[in-house]
Design a protein around this nucleic acid. Structure first.
Length: 470
RNA sequence: GGCGACGUAGCCAAGUGGCAAGGCAGAGGUCUGCAAAACCUCCAUCCCCAGUUCGAUUCUGGGCGUCGCCUCCA
């Protein structure tokens, strides 16, 4: 089986081959911690998690680096208004980011480098770029000279001539050779020292531009050529294009072999969710509205392929939460099943088919939605088999393996149900006694009491089952 | 203006040159003390028009619509 990933660089699904056999180095653009991450940011971060998990499933030893941008114009503005240093300003948002990632069950990255902790690496790279004529100093600022990098635009397939010059910047505000030259270093402004946002450098005191951090930090942790670089589509231009220019101009080596870009999450009106546009939804908002973070995870990851736009809606979130519930219920039932010595070759064959199909779907550019569709199909068949006792040891074991397969990506089943609290157990026993005595009034009353505590009871042939419910 | 993507059921969506996955919602059943869960059944002429083809939802062209990027952005 071969893993194929859609590579923006070639605009095709390429077979993934790492530089070093068995190892994969992945750099992913993390959050700018100027605010809470919104659901669209989280989608991108979960896509990184999916890539990383599937690489692991495929047998790679993955080094995953995700940067934290803890200095940029927005942070500077906000810190100034709040009258604190950027370090102080950013702190709660960094904490919130890790909380969110934990709640969403994203595997922690290997490294979370912060821009402000890697200034020397950036200064070094900028120095190199100035020395080899790819960058120049202009009135204390340092710019990358795009004219010196002929393949600029190759990633986003943008023709430089077609760019609408000066659309968003006042061309006369800067001393640039060309309007599209971008800043590597910004001269310190009067307030910067007070904000803790200025560093000394051979080319003058100041702070780094946005793009240089990724080039410098990825090199520090993963070397000059990355196996995979991932980010949201909106970073493709100019951010990733600039990273390529900086890194390749400084290192004289290909920067990244695979570029993966995840599509946007749209809001209910169908428009891209963005912080600057105002209306955006955070994980906290969703939790407050009663959505389980794990259901949010499933929604963001499994309801649509990562390269298609996905629209956030209450109905879609509810659907995701039902899907999670069904898969958990299914896994729980398989675990509890006590199969006999039964010939279940047909079921076994189907499980084999679905496991292979699931793997194939994921190998085909991480098509988790398709894989999940297969899983649901099989869950129905397997539930029917269990309903009628047509499941044997081997079928049960194969189902457990399948559950492990999909949970390696979804991570919605494991570490569930910590064990019956004694009080719950006592109430269930009391209710069972009442039912035996045909005191259904008391039995229903107990079930209601437990429901109020968030415990749902289900009477089945194998006894009473319980689960957490909202 | 330049570049690009998308349009599949009430909703979210996968997919293929040959009878259109899956989930949610809905309807009807089976099971159950009642429920729940599970299972069964039902629920789509794939935006429109041409063309290529034995055959098009899939390929080509045109149209309509929605959205993204074009130096804040995941």
């Amino acid at each position: 089986m071969t893993l194929r990933l859609h590579n923006t660089l070639t605009a095709a699904k390429d077979v993934f081959e790492p530089i070093e056999a068995g190892r994969a180095g992945m750099y992913t653009c993390g959050p700018t911690v100027w605010n809470y991450a919104h659901a669209g940011n989280l989608r991108a971060f979960l896509v990184y998690d999916l890539v990383r998990r599937h690489l692991q499933v495929s047998g790679y030893d993955v080094t995953h680096v995700m940067n934290l941008t803890d200095i940029d114009d927005r942070i500077l503005d906000q810190a100034m208004h709040a009258g604190v240093t950027i370090g102080e300003y950013v702190k709660p948002y960094v904490a919130a980011f890790f909380e969110d990632m934990g709640a969403l069950r994203a595997q922690p990255a290997t490294h979370y480098p912060r821009a402000t902790e890697h200034i020397p690496e950036m200064v070094e790279m900028i120095t190199e770029l100035i020395e080899n004529q790819h960058a120049y100093v202009a009135d204390g600022d340092v710019y990358f000279r795009i004219a010196s990098f002929p393949t600029y635009g190759a990633l986003s397939h943008l023709d430089r001539g077609g760019l609408r010059a000066g659309a968003r910047i006042a061309a006369d505000k800067y001393d640039k050779e060309s309007v599209s030259d971008f800043a590597l270093w910004k001269k310190a402004q009067p307030m910067d020292d007070k904000l803790g946002a200025a560093w000394d450098a051979p080319f003058g005191r100041g702070r780094p531009g946005w793009h240089i951090e990724c080039s410098a930090m990825s090199k520090r942790y993963l070397g000059e050529t990355l196996d995979i670089h991932a980010g949201g589509v909106d970073l493709m231009f100019p951010h990733h294009e600039n990273e390529i220019a900086q890194s390749e101009a400084a290192n004289h080596k290909q920067f990244a072999r695979f570029w993966l870009h995840s599509e946007h999450l749209a809001d209910a009106t169908g428009e891209k969710m963005s912080k600057s546009a105002g209306g955006f939804t955070t994980l906290r908002d969703l939790s407050d509205a009663g959505h389980d973070p794990v259901a949010v995870r499933f929604f963001l990851l499994a309801s649509a392929h990562y390269r298609t736009r996905l629209r956030l809606s209450t109905e879609a979130l509810h659907a995701a939460s039902e899907q999670v519930r069904r898969l958990r219920e299914f896994a729980d039932r398989v675990r509890r099943s006590a199969p006999g010595p039964i010939d279940d070759d047909d079921l076994l064959r189907r499980i084999g088919e679905v496991r292979a199909g699931y793997r194939e779907a994921l190998d085909d550019d991480l098509n988790l939605p398709q894989g999940v569709g297969l899983v649901f199909e099989l869950a129905r068949e397997a539930n029917a088999a269990m309903d009628s006792g047509r499941i044997g040891e081997r079928g049960r074991d194969a189902l457990l393996q399948l559950i492990d397969d999909f949970d390696a990506h979804l991570d919605i089943v494991r570490s569930e149900e910590p064990g019956l609290a004694q009080e719950v157990e006592r109430l269930i026993a009391e209710r069972e006694a009442a039912r035996k005595g045909h005191d259904f009034g008391r039995a229903d009353q107990i079930r209601e009491e437990l429901r109020d505590k968030g415990i749902a009871l289900e009477d089945s042939q194998d006894g009473v089952r319980w689960r957490r419910a909202r």
